[in-house]
Design a protein around this nucleic acid. Structure first.
Lengths: 107, 107
DNA sequence: AAAGTACTTGCTAAAGTGGAAAGTTCTTGG
DNA sequence: CCAAGAACTTTCCACTTTAGCAAGTACTTT
């Protein structure tokens, strides 16, 4: 016979990092846009520089977003984009949300 | 001319209460099932009695779920179900999530 | 030299959680 | 009648997360 693995609620598969609405929104914005500048994300998600800086660092540390430093003329430009891993985590998270909510046209 | 209301990120419309994965899962379970007993929810969502009791109270206080006390024989039975308001909040929350994630087949 | 741009970091205070354990109110077994 | 359970509830508490503000860094512009 095949051993039955104790089913766990899909909730346990939700990504802790993506639970937070700010990070969720950042990821969503990047997923849509591909790459965005610091200010663009800040304005799109409507948060303070401080908050974005912190959350972006958290996402970077997790390997979900890559932070690129370049220059626009002489001024520094920080651009954000999803890493392959980040995109995968994002899709998995959405799939889990759907699973919990009941995939049927609901969500 | 018509005054332009400063657009706000849909994130601001996410329901704080439904942000929490446990409460999110409880709501999802009740939305699907209609009514569930305390133990059923506890087992479905995989949480401790303590946690469910607390979160259920929070949802009740918010007017999202109605907690019914009845008897199964002589033993008390607590049953939970969504209130009209709770169902509305649930749908709105999902709609906002979809909006942020990018409604296109994504989520 | 002073001010500004683009971020980053330190600090703090408030909130949100969960687990363990004790408490409630009944019911049932000995 | 008393000890045990069942079905929750509440208290206590330790921890984690976050936001916001203020200060700091590294340049550039006036």
């Amino acid at each position: 016979m095949t051993a039955t693995v104790p089913e766990q609620h899909p909730r346990h598969r939700l990504d802790d990092l993506l639970q937070n609405p700010v990070r969720f929104s950042i990821m969503a914005a990047l997923d849509r846009a591909g790459t965005l500048g610091f200010k663009e994300v800040r304005d799109a998600v409507e948060i303070t520089d401080s908050a974005l800086s912190k959350q972006a660092s958290a996402l970077e540390a997790a390997g979900y977003v890559s932070v690129g430093k370049s220059f626009a003329g002489k001024m520094p430009r920080t651009s954000l984009s999803l890493t392959r891993q980040g995109r995968a985590a994002w899709k998995a998270h959405l799939a889990t949300l759907r699973e919990i909510a009941g995939s049927a046209g609901e969500l």
